[in-house]
Nucleic acid binder design. Structure first.
Lengths: 124, 124
DNA sequence: CTTGACATACGAATTAATTAGTACTACAAA
DNA sequence: TTTGTAGTACTAATTAATTCGTATGTCAAG
């Protein structure tokens, strides 16, 4: 048996990003946005958004004939969950080795580090 | 069509972690290690390690009747690749918002931040 | 020599993820 | 009123990921 994805799958995430950008969106909105980058069928988008709704990531209500979708959770909540899952799976739950990677591979620079330090001050 | 995973799948990663720990390992070694945590068949592990070999993550050589596997790349290389893919997919390629998440969710504390700062000094 | 333990090879079944086709409905325009 | 457009519902096909069974071979112990 193959274990179900607990977080968003890649395609689901791609759609959610577009919905978050728009606050609210129809299937057609997302379909057209996706079309700019790749060939995809309208019904494919519809199916994905239906799945996202049954999974609890989107809520819908009828407006005239079409459904209007909106996110059920904030981007921060969902992305935060994905990050946690990633840290658990790849780094056994500790964020420090992740940081080491970011620094060593120069994904972060001192400038960003300072920004982060400032953030910590704000939270305190 | 479903896009192929460019990086390690969850189960593949689980096995690779065990091989990295050991430097070199047989199917039986990994099988027994996995058994401690969950029910799994010997042939399942064999299949997975064969896949990892064809994907270029493991190399094997015969020793007597069994194969001895060893990693084809270092843990840092592979994990680094997974991290990059994650940042690309989830954070559109920029590490800074990832950092913001880590800080806001208290996954990192000041102590870790200092460690990282020290690391940056070493690299310079 | 036979048997049991242990290894690989090969094939296949299952499930999730992704994609899209077809049927049907409602509304508006001609 | 007919026809085209745009929407949903439903079904289904494809591929990757995961799992494991069966067949087969080899070697060592008895």
């Amino acid at each position: 048996m193959r274990p179900k994805h607990t977080t968003l799958t890649p395609q689901e995430l791609e759609i959610m990003k577009l919905v978050w950008q728009r606050e609210t969106a129809t299937v057609r909105d997302i379909y057209e946005a996706l079309l700019e980058h790749r060939k995809i069928a309208y019904t494919t988008v519809m199916t994905m958004m239906k799945i996202l709704e049954t999974k609890g990531y989107l809520r819908k209500r009828r407006q005239d004939r079409a459904f209007i979708y909106r996110p059920a959770h904030t981007k921060n909540q969902v992305i935060g969950g994905m990050l946690r899952e990633f840290i658990d799976r790849v780094f056994n739950g500790s964020a420090e080795p992740l940081l080491v990677h970011l620094v060593k591979t120069r994904h972060i620079r001192e400038k960003d580090l300072q920004k982060m330090a400032r953030l910590i001050e704000e939270i305190k």
